[in-house]
Design a protein around this nucleic acid. Structure first.
Lengths: 181, 181
DNA sequence: TTAAACTTTCAGAAATTACTGAAACTTCAG
DNA sequence: CTGAAGTTTCAGTAATTTCTGAAAGTTTAA
């Protein structure tokens, strides 16, 4: 599997971005390669194309599976496993979003909840708990909202996004409508 | 500046989470400490409370400033700088969101745009460009939407979030209203 | 000016994270 | 069974990131 320069630049960029998106460089590259490639690739092809060890590919695939971002394919008369990106670009975005939520927000929410169960012992803790409550409530609102958005189908979500700030006008309209009705 | 166990657990948690949120452990701890503390803190107080070197505090503050998350305060008759979190919890969330956008999404968008200007050289590149376009369009929609949401005031944003998937019903209502009108 | 009080910088050390490659494991056809 | 074709694991090493502390820089009061 030879990469053309353009494809290589995309794959390497996914590597750089990988760490910002929550995985490491080689996992990013692997995922970029799978997205950009029409055919499913075997572990050994990935390893050779990206010049990384076979063991690293195995760990990377595991990581991508934990994000539900790849799927395995088998070919008849062939014992190898072939890997493909799981789902559409939209689904990929939603999964990354969901997983990050799980890894970044949920643990904080649970720490805050625990902490808020205790009575503050002094003025300093009183202030601290006030802040923790603010953060807790904000995160909970966001989590709840994100959950709801994910129940919408991609089309509707797309409409909503394209609408942008316009949604604000629609909410106003609803208010007027309900008042006058 | 002594931390009570509850406050310490929060601050240490911010440290763990720091890396997931885009900075490193000590920067996370520093920010947690500033949020949870009613009074502004000097660099030396931060350094002593968290047991980290004075130089590290200086670098951490610089990092937090690059995220626009801290603000400096001066006290009369005192040459030290004192640090405070910049803005409300809402503003903090919006800033983290904006900065991550800048760091994680914008570079990818620009790479994709460049790549899409070239004609595909073969069938493999044709497929690749198709995928790149999909990703590009999706990221652009999200970026645009995020930008618009940020122009809304917190109250309205809150209303919208609390509405959750209900927003979908309102969009339907608008459609019906426009058709019948 | 000077010097005290503070901040920033940065080379090198420490800590963390990622990667390799060889060994162990699994699966399956014969 | 056996062994060939594959996958996974993991100890050790390499690469990267973070942190320290001392030196350089800055600011201000006298």
């Amino acid at each position: 599997m030879m990469m053309t320069p353009k494809i290589e630049s995309f794959v390497m960029h996914c590597g750089e971005m990988g760490s910002k998106w929550g995985f490491n460089r080689t996992v990013g590259q692997m995922y970029g390669l799978l997205i950009i490639n029409e055919q499913a690739l075997s572990a050994i092809e990935i390893s050779e194309t990206l010049n990384i060890s076979r063991g690293n590919v195995s760990m990377g695939i595991k990581e991508l599976q934990s994000w539900r971002l790849v799927q395995v394919q088998h070919k008849p008369k062939d014992r190898k496993e072939y890997y493909l990106p799981a789902g559409s670009i939209w689904e990929m975005a939603i999964r990354v979003f969901e997983e990050r939520q799980k890894r970044e927000v949920d643990p904080t929410l649970s720490l805050l909840r625990d902490n808020l169960l205790n009575e503050p012992a002094n003025e300093q803790e009183q202030f601290a708990q006030g802040k923790m409550r603010e953060i807790h409530d904000l995160l909970e609102t966001i989590t709840h909202w994100a959950g709801e958005l994910q129940t919408m189908n991609p089309d509707k979500l797309n409409t909503l996004m394209k609408l942008g700030a316009g949604v604000s006008k629609i909410i106003d309209m609803k208010d007027r409508f309900l008042k006058s009705g």
